[in-house]
């Protein structure tokens, strides 16, 4: 028998966007229009909200969690009659994986790139050449120290 893990829920409640999971009454409006569900039926935003209500930390934040299959399309945000905004709860859960060390490597790469370069795409010689061919100025980013300061505060 499953027991509700209130400690986990309390924690989720404090993460930006996480609290709204409390309003979910499991109607399933988020499921019908979810493109990730259409192509991978195991991915089900209603079930993810139920797991949040039960506080099933391992299912949600573990290395095999399905949350990483969310397309970020915002259809569930549009459909939810309770303004749970399932996508935002999923993003809150993703934020929680960092503390656990089970976050996606892509997330870590992107954070690191922004920290180092201020942008997510690394400039290549080919692109520099294309910019010149197109008559565009060389790409420059100023104020990187501001970004670094925010990233490391």
């Amino acid at each position: 028998m499953k027991k509700v893990n209130y400690e986990f829920r309390d924690k989720l409640n404090t993460v930006l966007g996480g609290f709204a999971h409390n309003y979910c009454y499991q109607c399933g409006a988020c499921v019908g229009d979810c493109p990730a569900h259409r192509f991978l039926p195991e991915f089900n935003p209603r079930k993810i909200m139920l797991q949040a209500i039960y506080g099933l930390e391992e299912d949600l934040l573990g290395p095999d969690s399905l949350i990483w299959n969310c397309t970020n399309c915002y259809n569930c945000y549009e459909r939810c009659p309770q303004e749970v905004h399932p996508i935002e709860v999923i993003i809150a859960l993703k934020n929680m994986t960092r503390e656990k060390g089970t976050q996606s490597p892509t997330v870590e790469n992107i954070l690191q790139r922004v920290n180092e370069k201020g942008v997510t795409v690394i400039s290549t010689e080919m692109i520099k050449k294309r910019r010149a061919e197109l008559g565009l100025p060389e790409y420059k980013l100023e104020g990187k120290e501001e970004i670094e300061k925010i990233m490391n505060s």
Binding site: V15, L16, N95, I110, V114, L141, I150
Partner: peptide, 27 residues
């Protein structure tokens, strides 16, 4: 304006650190 950085990205960056995502976007 050459000071505009990554927005930052709404998928991975936001999934990593939503607070810093807000701050950098506000910047």
């Amino acid at each position: 304006d050459n000071r505009l950085s990554c927005c930052p990205d709404p998928i991975y960056f936001k999934a990593g650190d939503k607070m810093k995502w807000l701050i950098l976007a506000a910047r």
